[in-house]
Design a protein around this nucleic acid. Structure first.
Lengths: 169, 169
DNA sequence: GCTAGAAATGCGACAAAGTCGCAATTAGGC
DNA sequence: GCCTAATTGCGACTTTGTCGCATTTCTAGC
């Protein structure tokens, strides 16, 4: 995979800046991320690693993933309804929010400049210094509303900055 | 407690409309909610019930709470950083978002009409029918930013629609 | 290349959160 | 008060996440 070496580079820079080491397991974690879909949990990473014939211990991943988050490679989200720890790739992607369809389970990534601005204003009003934010809107996507079969949307041209990232898990 | 009987009424109406029963345990759950703070988990409800000398099984609460959510009595949130299931009272309170302080752990409820409007616009653009939404902004509150001792804010008059609902758990 | 010391890993045990099937109990219409 | 379906308690189980410790593996210095 091509993107992964760039990502490994980013990780290495981060680790060095902290006096930490770039180990086999950490590189593996980055590759596993590439192999995963848009949203994944730690067990998914473990499975991806195993699929490559490599094994990592769960505890190790639980220790590694926060580093990837700090390095900006991953971003923690709770996109789906369930409150399991979920992550998504965070590199080179602008911030975005999630529209989660309650019927087909699809997760649609959207971004809105106006929204960002409004959030900034809100924070300013409360003297709050934002580090990150997460907006999740649950409801029904266009296809599920119109009673069409869920899945239609995937065949339609994307609109604006919306990306459909996941079907039902 | 005064509010609880009104809430029980609301629950009863909901249950009847579904052909379900208003049981001792469900009433108890509502009372336990009243006894809890702004944000709580299922174990908190269990503890609140026990404090009244009544006992409910965990599994029962896990079955009851989703009903309370459907009835509009509770609302599911993940206000704090951890991804444990958390709830807050949902009755008669306008929608609000959360500013979560990473230093003192306080959770500040805010609401912004402009934000709501922006979200509505976003949904409309994607043909998405929103059912609910949740915005969580993590960062540092005014007091923690200014390096004052965390906790100062509680003594200051509240501004606008901000409500401080929780300290570190 | 070798060595020492620190960092990282694997392991297993544990805790917390949540789910499930089943037998016993109970609400509520008659 | 009786009857039946809904509800509950129970306990066993899964999943998710954490921790301490012994072992392994980096890296720097020689």
């Amino acid at each position: 995979m091509k993107g992964s070496s760039a990502t490994v580079g980013q990780l290495e820079r981060f680790l060095r800046s902290r006096g930490l080491r770039l180990t086999r397991c950490r590189k593996l974690a980055v590759e596993a991320v590439e192999a995963c879909g848009a949203h994944f949990g730690i067990e998914d990473l473990k499975a991806a690693a195993r699929a490559k014939g490599l094994r990592v211990h769960r505890a190790t991943l639980y220790r590694t993933v926060p580093l990837l988050v700090e390095a900006g490679i991953l971003r923690k989200v709770s996109a789906s309804g369930g409150d399991r720890g979920e992550y998504e790739k965070g590199l080179g992607r602008g911030h975005h929010d999630h529209l989660l369809c309650l019927r087909c389970g699809r997760s649609i990534e959207v971004s809105s400049v106006a929204m960002e601005r409004e959030q900034a204003r809100l924070c300013a009003r409360h003297g709050f210094l934002a580090v990150d934010h997460q907006l999740r809107i649950r409801g029904y996507c266009a296809d599920c509303r119109s009673d069409g079969q869920p899945g239609d949307a995937a065949r339609r041209p994307g609109r604006e900055s919306a990306v459909i990232v996941a079907g039902r898990r």
